[in-house]
Design a protein around this nucleic acid. Sequence first.
DNA 1: ATAGGTTTTGTCAAGCTTTTGTACAT
DNA 2: ATGTACAAAAGCTTGACAAAACCTAT
Lengths: 292, 292, 292
Amino acid sequence: MLYADVVNDDGLLRIGELSRRSGVSPELLRAWERRYGLLRPTRSGGGLRLYSSADLERVRAMQRHLAAGFAAAEAAALATRPVDASDRPYAPDAARADLATAVAAFDEARVHAVLDALLGAATLDAVLSDVIIPFLHELGDRWERGEVSVAQEHFASGILRGRLLALTRGWDRGLGPRILLACAPREQHDLGLIAFGLALRSRGFRILYLGADTPLESVAGAARAAALEFVVVSAVHPDRFRAVAPQLEELARERRLSIGGAGVVEVDLEVPRLTGGAVEEAERVTALARTA
Amino acid sequence: MLYADVVNDDGLLRIGELSRRSGVSPELLRAWERRYGLLRPTRSGGGLRLYSSADLERVRAMQRHLAAGFAAAEAAALATRPVDASDRPYAPDAARADLATAVAAFDEARVHAVLDALLGAATLDAVLSDVIIPFLHELGDRWERGEVSVAQEHFASGILRGRLLALTRGWDRGLGPRILLACAPREQHDLGLIAFGLALRSRGFRILYLGADTPLESVAGAARAAALEFVVVSAVHPDRFRAVAPQLEELARERRLSIGGAGVVEVDLEVPRLTGGAVEEAERVTALARTA
Amino acid sequence: MLYADVVNDDGLLRIGELSRRSGVSPELLRAWERRYGLLRPTRSGGGLRLYSSADLERVRAMQRHLAAGFAAAEAAALATRPVDASDRPYAPDAARADLATAVAAFDEARVHAVLDALLGAATLDAVLSDVIIPFLHELGDRWERGEVSVAQEHFASGILRGRLLALTRGWDRGLGPRILLACAPREQHDLGLIAFGLALRSRGFRILYLGADTPLESVAGAARAAALEFVVVSAVHPDRFRAVAPQLEELARERRLSIGGAGVVEVDLEVPRLTGGAVEEAERVTALARTA
DNA sequence: ATAGGTTTTGTCAAGCTTTTGTACAT
DNA sequence: ATGTACAAAAGCTTGACAAAACCTAT
């Protein structure tokens, strides 16, 4: 189930099944159709109503509006109103707001649509530094202030992780210098590191990505096994670095190690620190590699 | 009876012996020969049928096919068809071995190439249950035995997570029942849960995915906010369940909750458990949802 | 592999066995065939229905859809959709067919949806060489045979150009070796060249892209101005090369020039020729650059 | 919400044919 | 060993029927 399904969405429901799925009686569904034109079912050869998934969505919207206190006529008007698909060129601020709304409603399709529009309108660098990374920060802040639930934060990072990882495909191939990326032990936030990797990739690096919560011995081992010179270890929380400070400094003597992520600002180690944004630091690392 | 009486110099069997060895009556053997050309015995000077061991194999194949439910004509066609071993490129065992080699060498391009070939050759269900999930298990086992480094394990799961998440796009769309998937608190292994979600998706479910390490209050909150009936919480380690047993049982009273993942086997809770593989349990959940 | 899997390859079932395996009564199976064309069994000499494993799959799909609440007619329509026959996640042939249908109907959303699904399921390399480039060839062939209108051909190449160009963003940045790509003078087909550029980019090259119909003096000038060593000139029609043969040979003495595209096969020049597919030749060029 | 009519769909039956294991005469 | 016969099992087609689900109109 793939190609046709993506567009064609689904089959058609008869009124009984629509009723079952929406919890609205068939009589009422027909009344809403007759009175407010809420639904526009196609018909079978014999005249039975056939509803699409869009109809089901409209019924659900109608129910939400009714529950919110609107009169039936108004609720129907709201539910049938077309979703404005304004094709503005590239508006990072509006996009962040859109993402926030979509995440609040667990609306996966909308999140993807916003990301599609963004990636269609601007470079990955721009989308990462103007939208995705700031959005993640905002999300984190609002989570701390209790304005966003853990579920919403998880939902959002799941989708973003999927989108970003999809862009990483093949990022270890080719001719450029190879760099190893890993999160410090016990560090679970990997999205910033992935973004950093993507920024590096678009500058010609080959990425060996180990991801969240990687023991430093493994980092060192992999760097040795794959003969890598450059290594970046990332953490959002400074304690993650402090807990392994000696090992980090040892690795720094062996390889060209940098540490990055929000956790670096308060840490004092004998290791170069990437304190800026992912794209900015990718640019700096590239410049460094050029001279090396 | 002497050996020489039933088997002649060239190792050829007479019909009685073929009958005895195969359990098929001589009459029926002759009928199969006449009707379907199943057997092509040579003849003795006196006209007696002389069967080779290949004939015996064909008879046994015929019996297997009959037992499998094929009618005689079709079973014979299958038994006489030349063994064209494999003209289709789906070889799960070889693929797993390939993946292991590629991962050991941190060869990202090769991992992707293997996955491309697999996804092009078989259904997602098959690839998940024959290759990806077993591969992850093998990887875990070999990690426990120290044959695989953490770095290799991380490298592999990063790539697989990216590929699987890419396939999840739009999995919340459609007409089917909606189901919430989350890992138990402190549980970081999400790949099995993603695979389970994909298997459910291909059976028509709509997926709301919260991912690793999700507090149960968030699960409950999201289930309420999005009006979801079905919820699955997963963990690889049983302690993850035990630590939140009361909350799980409370949630189970409120929603249709199941728990799954390797961690369920040793846990004793008043909550339905999904103890099988991802695809298998997806099938079961689908059946369950039907009865609801 | 289980015995059943081997047999399922192409064994034929009679209606009783199909009934046993699916749990659907023979009467109902015949009714579904008669009413909805769900099954298309071949017939034995005497007229008995003979079903393939694909038929069994269709019956099972039908049952799933019924269980999901669809009425029989709608469930059958879903189960007979061509995509259900090969529900591999990555089905290049099905995708090409889908693209052709969508193009014939000027259905842009569907073209995008198919491409989205493909790029989610496989690597760009695979999609280029398995789907996009073959599709362009088919389109050209069918245009020559008059089966496709100019409008359809323009529509398709417009969309594909847009999608591919969106992926080229920033492809001149970074650390890799630089390569100049241009179409020969008067050559308008640039899609293959873009695909080639993308394959090179994913291997670490930096691309300087001049596009369709570029005078060779401009190519030479740009190569000199940007100090580029590698140059590829492409054409679909051999005359485009012949018309500028001396200049090509001169440029080849100055830079590492290759010529590519469908037009190279019949041309005889003192210039290295890239006669294979875009991805394949990108791999070769990468290997060359490595040794250089 | 009800009444009265229509469509859809699973099931069944009658009468006939094909398939297939077994039996028997030569 | 061969060829023919035979009867049970399984299938085929046509036609019909009744319960469930839907329709419109009041």
